[in-house]
């Protein structure tokens, strides 16, 4: 098996007096979609924010493509090839959709073929290309947030709850776009509460609880074992059909 694109080794992260991550171990294989699952407040978002450098691990190591990025500044981590879609979407409301996208293309002008692909996946972005992003609906903002990460090829995409609070039609659009990204061979670490989406996209799954990784394995194994789901997360994936 090839080296994982991302590896966390015993990562501890504190936020003020709170010990959020307490020895997280995680491997994200290349060219696959890795799901990060668990109840609310168990440390999924903090794990992603620690990888991108918004929070600092005070113990343990974060290895990206074989390099130790634990202490690197966020901009250098991003330039190493990480695309980040935060839970709050991080849209620049006063900038137009176009300006948001131009800003995300850090290596030069936007590739037109890639932009066409994004427009096909997310048609509203074409419609509102010159509009202020603050005027978009919640779903359209989420499309823009994901499109910003997709505007250039990244070695790894960190995506935090892309379907949160969205209407079912928009969730389908998101899932379709992420599947296309996956089919291109992208490596994705995805935090997702919608288990139908998780099951459809995930290759491997990692379940967190109380700041630790409590289970890692194939998504198919988790989705096919109701007892395991019940034990790990207190719910059944079958309930989310």
């Amino acid at each position: 098996m090839s080296e994982p694109i991302l590896k966390l080794e015993g990562v501890y992260t504190n936020i003020a007096q709170y010990h959020i991550l307490q020895g997280v171990d995680l491997e994200v294989p290349k060219g696959a979609v890795t799901m990060l699952l668990g109840r609310n407040g168990v440390g999924k978002t903090t794990t992603l924010r620690t990888v991108i450098g918004h929070w600092r691990a005070h113990k343990g190591r974060v290895l990206f493509d074989g390099e130790d990025i634990t202490a690197l500044p966020t901009p250098l981590i991003a330039r190493a090839g990480l695309g980040f879609v935060p839970e709050d979407m991080g849209i620049f409301s006063d900038l137009t959709v176009e300006e948001n996208m131009v800003l995300a293309a850090i290596h030069g002008p936007i590739n037109s073929a890639r932009l066409d692909w994004i427009f096909t996946a997310f048609p509203p972005l074409k419609t509102f290309w010159k509009s202020e992003a603050g005027n978009l609906s919640g779903g359209q903002k989420q499309m823009l947030s994901i499109a910003r990460a997709m505007v250039e090829e990244r070695k790894l995409y960190l995506i935090d709850e892309p379907t949160k609070g969205l209407a079912p039609a928009i969730v389908s659009t998101m899932a379709r776009a992420l599947r296309e990204l996956k089919e291109q061979g992208a490596s994705i670490l995805l935090v997702e509460q919608n288990f139908a989406v998780a099951r459809a996209l995930g290759d491997t799954a990692n379940v967190m609880d109380d700041g630790r990784m409590i289970w890692s394995g194939a998504m198919a194994e988790l989705s096919g074992d109701a007892t395991l789901q019940e034990r790990l997360m207190g719910l059944s994936l079958d309930a989310h059909h």
């Binding site: 991108i52 901009p75 991003a78 980040f84 991080g90 620049f92 409301s93 006063d94 900038l95």
Partner: peptide
């Protein structure tokens, strides 16, 4: 200009600008 874009975005959300790869 791109630098102006970075400044305007940075005024709104500096953390996200850094996550895109710019040394704010």
């Amino acid at each position: 200009t791109k630098i102006g874009l970075i400044v305007r975005a940075g005024v709104q959300n500096g953390e996200m600008v850094e996550a895109l790869g710019y040394r704010l």
